[in-house]
Design a protein around this nucleic acid. Structure first.
Lengths: 235, 235
DNA sequence: CCCCATATTGATCGCTTGATCAATACCCGG
DNA sequence: CCGGGTATTGATCAAGCGATCAATATGGGG
């Protein structure tokens, strides 16, 4: 009973195997965090020997970095696509806030926080983190610039601050709120409303103009694209 | 030349030794992050055998958690003391923002971020993180409540939101901005001005009322309490 | 002054990590 | 239908981790 491998050795094309490995890394990171991305853990998930994983990647650092990049870029694409459905720039900001604070994205938030933490001591990961942060900021800045061009926003209303700076500010708030909710489930019940106020103040717009659902009650909108687990669960 | 210990074995009182160990842990965490808090690393810093550290603590998890708590509580005390010198509540908010965003606190920020990240898999640390987050939020909420009582702030001006919720929001923004600056040195040059605008919007106050230096130019105020290294250095 | 309670040592265990490589076995092309 | 190119294995190494404990040596109290 020592040997007798349950599954016979299967031989796949390099590209296919590489894809399997990267997919396993992505899933593992989402389920248990970047820190769980171990050579053996990835191998076990794929169902191959640890040596095979080593053979296809060059260094765990690279695999961790790419897993981070894939996960975060994927989410950015998802949110970007969702915002594209919103006609007015003001509503896009509201939809962004709604989506990204919906409480069902703890998995991605953990990846973000661990990315910041593990960036020390993993140069590849640190580079990926910077890159993805820039991508997110660029997306938000684009929405803001569009709103300015269309006359929805008026940044000069308050003080200095171009679209770039405001986008950074907004992204920081989002990241901070999500990081908090990762540790303190339900930090504040009305994060959404307050964040809308903040965004409105930064953009020189009316809070009600941002609110994606018009003036309907906020509870009626609850589309969780990926995760449907109840917030408040203990992972 | 294998043996011959350079320093002869010195024998100290348990309380003294324990203090040494905790001090070393604190310093190491500030210099290299919580992840560097290794049994052997702490022992080496104190200048004792690794076994001695084990003898005085119960588990590295506890030591890491206590180092986190000490560092963060220390900073909270420092900031609280600094705010006490500010007479008006509005100015206290401005001083808080100035102090906590001065760019010279990357060491503490790294501890925060690693606290969030390592909280998974270290229950004691997770508890300490929650506790310190609550303490910070309580301090900010206190300042806000005081301002409301004194008539400086008017939370009802915008929408729902008590002092607690606004304090969480403000803390999240601060944490997010600092986390960003940890990875992207100098994310936005005018974080301070924008944060003041956000705070003013949340509190229903005038931005200029918060600004600690009155209406002087912001560049004239640059007191870095602990670190004086130039932002933009590569650690 | 010297003795013994005890602070301290450092070797050691068991475990996990990433990485390497000779040996193995699969499966496509001829 | 086989042979060989190569995908795959799994044992193995060195390093680092936390934890344990018999052995040692220190210095204050009797």
């Amino acid at each position: 009973m020592t040997s007798t491998p349950a599954a016979p050795r299967t031989r796949k094309s390099p590209v296919e195997r590489r894809a399997e490995i990267e997919r396993a890394a992505r899933e593992l990171a989402l389920e248990q965090g970047l820190a769980a991305l171990t050579l053996r853990a990835v191998a076990a998930r794929v169902g191959v020997a640890s040596g095979l994983v080593s053979h296809y990647i060059d260094g765990m650092d690279e695999l961790v970095a790419s897993a981070f990049a894939v996960i975060v870029a994927e989410e950015l694409d998802e949110v970007t696509a969702l915002l594209a459905g919103e006609p007015a720039a003001a509503r896009r900001v509201g939809a962004l806030i709604d989506t990204v604070l919906d409480g069902g994205r703890d998995d991605v938030t953990l990846v973000w926080v661990q990315g910041w933490a593990l960036g020390t001591g993993n140069a590849a990961l640190a580079a990926a983190v910077r890159e993805q942060m820039d991508a997110w900021q660029a997306m938000i800045a684009g929405v803001i610039s569009d709103g300015i061009a269309k006359g929805s926003f008026d940044l000069a209303a308050g003080a200095s601050g171009d679209a770039d700076a405001v986008a950074w500010q907004l992204l920081a708030l989002i990241d901070g709120l999500n990081a908090h909710s990762l540790v303190r489930w339900q930090a504040a019940p009305d994060r959404r409303a307050l964040t809308l106020r903040v965004a409105a103040a930064l953009l020189g717009a009316d809070p009600s103009a941002l609110s994606a659902g018009g003036d309907a009650d906020p509870a009626s909108r609850s589309a969780h694209p990926r995760s449907d687990h109840h917030p408040g669960e203990n992972p």
